[in-house]
Design a protein around this nucleic acid. Structure first.
Lengths: 333, 333
DNA sequence: TTGAAAGCGCTAACAC
DNA sequence: GTGTTAGCGCTTTCAA
């Protein structure tokens, strides 16, 4: 592996001249430029970023911690983060916490050692927020998708999304509505439900405790929809706090010979690719994942570059995508 | 950010002693050990990996290039690669090529500059293999999921998987079988189809050109199943070269009021999570993604550590998962 | 068991 | 426009 010295020697100039050529910190004559370029080419020289990092004490690398990249929603966010990084000249160090808060903490530590310039975190949502804060990060951190009080974050406006879903369902005439809540400890879920309930209130509606199913953000929790359907007065519509739960519910409803939307309306959240793949496709609240990822990176890099460390909270507005899984309440119900 | 010198000063020893303590290259006395540990703790010292890399000329980081991390199949592989890396003490630099061969090449170059120790590549499959080889990599590379002639790779045994699918369908009595091939330029697809055809031959069967649909590895290509169903003698069973295509086909079949498996049997490939979510669940050829990821990392690290650079090809055996989307041919058909 | 010193590849003053 | 020089934080002989 050749170094800047090798290039310099071959080009018959000093190492610093080569450096100037690369950094553009000083103008080099046409003649030397040609010689340097020739040397670089024949030697196959690549600047050693480790050395540059050491010297500049910045790595142009950011860390990304996610709870579970196999979750399509997170995968799509990671992708857009990745694209934004490429565009802005940053490398991306990926770490999957496996939705385990202890591991999440270890990963943070080991990322710090890499002396990355900044960190993007989609936290597990399980840990007490304060302990994350207490670690007193040596570098800028922006939380993605799940916000943390008092710290910078870029998230979808979950409260608004909940309202959107409620307005849609109430507008279709539904009055007995169930909620597949998923994990009640996740802040996003709480906000979606809060928005949902608040909007319902404007229609003079509410959701009783028996009409709420808790669990986790998984397909299996969706299948617990059965507990709603065996109620003496089952709901005519259901709000699931994410698409995967909605898909799980739909799956169980199929098993029970209930049809969507004829027998029951179903609204999901996230608008993952799969939401379009059902028959009929799933009505859902879309989060702009591209924008979520892009803004996170942009914001983080801003915090890295200017020492402006006042936490900023960015909310990306959601939008309702009405597809085939919702319909007006049947007069009989 | 404190350095090894700060620690040394505070502990009243020389920097090299602190280094010895960390690397374990020399034994340190109990007394100094205690002083060093105290200093590290109060200073919150973290070794600077960039400096260490420069000195040791190895970064303990590997690069990973994937075509599209939003594809659930790749996402699952990336996850298992990530876990294996964590376990073995390597960091993971992620780069998504967006399934674009030009970008893939750029990413390789920029990863090289990071002086990573090795590289894992799931290539787009579009480029001529040779041009990838020609880049003459300065570091070990292991190709994942999609092999490249003459280079190290860890892939599923796609040919065997194709045979598995064919044996299953033929065994159920199907004689007119269609293939949703997807992208015929992807080697994996070719191999799956080759295996499928060869096994069919053993049953005295074959698939005529009109029964094969080409396209890409997408949901939309799956929906092209309609062109098979309007044939004068439509197939009674279909092999899709991945689950997403199968899901697309199923979606279209639903639209056409055809039922799976009563009217037509359907076999997918990959066993992504979603394959279990249909009603009935999808019969498919499973690739062991965990193992695929783990073996890739293990193999790459071996190539990094011992200079043994004779290319090794590892095939992970697939297995057929029979679920509800396949059934014996109806006597009427 | 500990320390002094050299150097990994690069950049940024500062001189010329 | 170009070169000299020092030093980023770390590890590693080699001596003491």
């Amino acid at each position: 592996m050749s170094t800047i010295k090798d290039v310099a020697r071959r080009a018959g100039v000093a190492p610093s001249t080569v450096s100037h050529y690369f950094t553009g910190n000083a103008r080099v004559s046409e003649a030397t430029r040609a010689k340097i370029e020739e040397a670089v080419r024949t030697l196959g020289y690549r600047p050693n970023l480790a050395a540059r990092s050491l010297r500049l004490s910045q790595t142009h690398t950011i860390g990304l911690v996610v709870p579970n990249i196999a979750n399509p929603f997170f995968a799509e966010i990671v992708q857009s983060i990745g694209f934004a990084c490429q565009q802005l000249g940053y490398s991306l160090l990926l770490a999957d916490s496996g939705n385990d808060e202890r591991r999440e903490l270890e990963l943070l530590q080991s990322l710090y050692k890499q002396h990355i310039d900044g960190m993007l975190i989609i936290h597990t949502g399980k840990r007490d927020e304060r302990s994350l804060m207490a670690t007193n990060p040596p570098i800028p951190i922006v939380y993605v998708d799940r916000e943390v009080d008092g710290l910078s974050s870029v998230t979808s406006d979950n409260y608004a999304g909940g309202r959107l879903a409620a307005r849609h369902l109430a507008g279709l005439g539904h009055r007995r509505i169930g909620i597949l809540a998923g994990d009640p400890h996740v802040q996003n879920v709480q906000q979606r439900i809060a928005g949902f309930r608040d909007e319902l209130k404007e229609f003079g509606l509410s959701v009783g405790p028996k009409y709420v199913i808790n669990g986790s953000q998984t397909f299996e929790t969706g299948r617990d929809v059965q507990f709603l359907m065996v109620l003496s007065k089952p709901p005519t519509a259901i709000f699931a706090t994410n698409d995967i739960i909605a898909l799980g519910a739909w799956n169980k409803l199929c098993d029970m010979k209930l049809r969507v939307p004829e027998d029951i309306s179903l609204v999901g959240y996230d608008n993952i690719d799969m939401a379009e793949w059902t028959v009929p496709p799933l009505t859902t609240v879309a989060q702009d994942k591209r924008e979520l990822g892009r803004q996170s990176v942009v914001r983080l890099i801003r915090e890295i570059q200017v020492k402006d460390s006042t936490p900023t909270v960015i909310h990306i507005p959601p939008r309702l995508i009405v597809r085939g899984s919702t319909a007006t309440r049947r007069s009989g119900a």
